[in-house]
Design a protein around this nucleic acid. Structure first.
Lengths: 248, 248
DNA sequence: CGAACAATTGAACACAGTCAAATACTGTGG
DNA sequence: CCACAGTATTTGACTGTGTTCAATTGTTCG
């Protein structure tokens, strides 16, 4: 079923879109050369599973393009997303042989992979990699804690508004049309994936999106394309502190 | 109000109870000497706030003894615990000047502190510290993700059983009376703190603890001392995978 | 002993979940 | 290009878990 690598890809690190944000961000020219030699690319189509929790995982990787998710499940099927992987995010844990979570491509993705052994050896010798990985892991931990507040204490409406804010923020940082407080973007997640992210059912997600639409907080064209006429209004709905760090 | 340092403490790193588990775990004798020179101790009484979110934080620290919590709040007072700090856990983030969370002592605690600047400088030169900190941060991230599953998808009863399992596991690793599947421990948290941990109200916590007691899953002596006659039963109630990693 | 705090218990309610049906998309083959 | 199948999404009616508000009981410590 899984036939990845349909279109084998090659890319020079110099031209890589995530060169300055990924785990290699701090590496100098020599170090990049070394990484260049051990890297390889893999691509997955939307919906494909990259790896199952518990499976042997002999590589680590950076997301080059597309979106993937980390999910955890209880035996009875209840599913919780525990990570949303965007371009430049890191997959896998040095020093661990099995995957701890399911990794799934929600859009077509391209990953820059390193076999675990050589990568670990290089990490030992290369503080720049370990330093960057520490920084990224601390950022992820902060994001996870923000997420815990959402899961534990926010209402369904606030959860939806928070998720839309996060996506809007990310898109704003890519195409910063500053000045205006109007934002437009595509939802990269299905209703079900949103539900798994937010600890809700997909019906509740659908209802709350409809409610935000009815109340004029968002405008929908089709099911996936969202326009936020007033981003401050959305941030209020998300229930965070005043500015929510949106402008930082 | 806050009068810490009532009993200034001094301790040799050689005698330190967290020497092999804290951020200094991998340091060699020379490195420990250097840390010894810049460390200082602070103690806080149960209930005291160590630092408020947003306050300037010019130190990082290890918890030597006692228990502290990290919490986040929404403006309207809703509170979510996002970290439970046990002995050897690390407080603060290198490269960040303000505290991101409220840190509160739930029992009397002793912290081994380092001023941020010297610590960061030493970290630059000392891979052993950065390596250990990365490892600890990755562990915390895993714990946070486990917690997200709990917050997003578990029932109130499962949440309580999970929390009791976590505390039981920790105590078991300290005094491992293997063979028996009977465990006894004291709850280090109030009902309110448990509620903030689990994303519940304190009334629901109280009701579910009463229910677990009524059903014979736990036995209470007083409000804080818990006996679990059959740890496997408790783990079943927690809803995790079969063994829940309890024996690993 | 009494005050302050912590925990339990009860009753009514509300928010989100469940089950079910209808509707809107998407891509495929005729 | 359209019809159709399969999937995603919306909407409705009802239910149930956990919350809220309130009163009571238990514990700790001046």
């Amino acid at each position: 079923m899984a036939h990845d690598d349909v279109h084998p890809v090659s890319l020079n690190c110099g031209d890589c879109p995530i060169r300055h944000r990924a785990v290699c961000a701090r590496c100098d020219a020599d170090e990049i050369d070394e990484l260049e030699n051990i890297k390889y690319y893999r691509s997955f189509e939307a919906g494909q599973t990259v790896i199952w929790a518990g499976d042997k995982m002999d590589f680590v990787a950076s997301i080059v393009s597309g979106i993937a998710t980390l999910t955890q499940t209880l035996e009875d099927g209840r599913t919780q997303m525990v990570g949303l992987l965007l371009p430049s995010d890191f997959v896998g844990r040095p020093g661990r042989s099995a995957a701890a979570y399911n990794v799934t491509a929600t859009t077509n993705i391209l990953m820059c992979c390193f076999r675990k052994k050589p990568f670990e050896e290089m990490m030992e010798r290369t503080p720049h990699i370990a330093q960057r990985l520490l920084q990224m892991t601390l950022d992820e931990l902060d994001a996870a804690r923000e997420w815990m507040l959402l899961l534990g204490r926010k209402t369904a409406r606030e959860k939806i508004a928070s998720l839309l804010s996060i996506i809007a923020r990310r898109d704003a940082s890519i195409k910063p049309l500053a000045g205006s407080n109007r934002v437009t973007f595509d939802l990269p997640l299905t209703r079900e994936a949103m539900a798994d992210y937010l600890g809700l059912t997909l019906e509740t997600v659908s209802r709350q999106i409809s409610a935000l639409k009815r109340d004029g907080v968002i405008v929908l064209e089709g099911k996936r394309h969202v326009t936020v006429p007033d981003i401050d209004r959305l941030l209020m709905e998300a229930g965070d502190d005043s500015d929510g760090g949106f402008l930082i």
